[in-house]
Write a protein that binds this DNA or RNA. Structure first.
Length: 294
DNA sequence: GGAATCATGTGAT
DNA sequence: ATCACATGATTCC
């Protein structure tokens, strides 16, 4: 199966109520809980009240990945491999690949611009932000856009929408918020539907944050698919080698999850260390991407 | 392998 | 000023 058709399949559950991610989420949680005694596929399926065949089908639809391959993709070993082939060059290989040209997420090219420092300090005053929730391969996705491009993308599980919205909206407290499902829907199609990739201009993204944060987010955009970097790598890259912890904080404040691939930032040990929208979702994104590079 | 401890930069209060 | 962090290295078990 080709990359594109895999993702085509992966996005069939974008339709409302499509619940593949719910299954994936529960599998990851089981694995994380019982990581000591690696549960067999049969055990996991049984606990979900499903047959291994059903589980197989779900994973193939979701990421073009067998459950077994997915299980492997969420281990510490795999994470270490993402950081650098056998620990050789990480900063150089991973970041250099992305250094030229615009950032990209999979095959979707992303052009980014930063708001001026003044606009950031204004906390969104005078800015109109249109927003809505949509189903996505990683749960419910809250999309926020300005007339200059995508400004926010957050995720949550069904039922948590209010908290998710409050979280996102508080980042630009003085902005004017308008629900606009049609407008955000266009972006959702662009982001999660590969058939809309590279057809038009790059996806426009607008980074609203402090100078330091924007520099961190821009370096995230340079991490290629199937690679990962450490927080200290990014610190090096932006010329502040001792600021790895500050980098972590800035990564955590990334307002455009997934499109700005903050899930590709890991701890030096390969540990996932954290994710604003839940470690389970970070694992899911990395596992899903493993299916893309196969 | 952890757990405790320290140095560390940024952003919010 | 002070505090909370999606860190990392070191030093103990």
């Amino acid at each position: 199966m080709s990359f594109a058709s895999r993702l085509q399949n992966a996005t069939t559950d974008i339709t409302p109520g499509g619940g593949d991610y719910e299954t994936v989420r529960r599998v990851i949680e089981m694995l994380t809980l019982d990581y000591r005694d690696q549960p067999a596929l049969e055990t996991i399926a049984a606990r979900l009240g499903q047959s291994p065949t059903q589980l197989q089908k779900t994973f193939t639809r979701w990421a073009g990945l067998s459950p077994k391959a997915f299980l492997q993709a969420v281990t510490l070993d795999h994470a270490k491999r993402l950081l650098g082939q056998d620990g050789l060059p990480l900063l150089e290989t991973a970041l250099e690949l992305g250094l030229s040209g615009p950032g990209r997420l999979h095959d979707l090219f992303v052009s980014h611009e930063a708001m001026s420092p003044g606009e950031w300090k204004a906390k969104g005053a005078g800015l109109t932000i249109r927003h809505a929730f949509h189903s996505s391969p990683f749960g419910e996705a809250l999309v926020m856009i300005t007339d200059r491009g995508l400004a926010g993308l957050g995720f949550c599980d069904p039922g948590e929408e209010n908290a998710c919205y409050a979280d996102m909206a508080s980042r630009w407290p003085l902005a004017h918020f308008v629900e606009d499902r049609a407008a955000t829907g266009i972006y959702v199609k662009r982001i999660f539907d590969p058939s809309n990739w590279q057809a038009e201009q790059p996806l426009r993204v607008v980074l609203i944050g402090s100078d330091f944060q924007v520099r961190v987010w821009q370096s995230l955009l340079q991490i290629p698919l199937g690679r990962a970097v450490t927080y200290s790598d990014i610190a090096q890259k932006i010329g502040q080698p001792t600021a790895s912890r500050a980098v972590g904080a800035a990564v955590g404040r990334n307002p455009i999850s997934f499109v700005v691939p903050c899930h590709r930032a890991l701890g030096k040990s390969g540990a996932l260390t954290g994710y604003h929208w839940g470690l389970t979702r970070k694992r899911a994104m990395l596992g899903w991407e493993a299916g893309c590079v196969g």
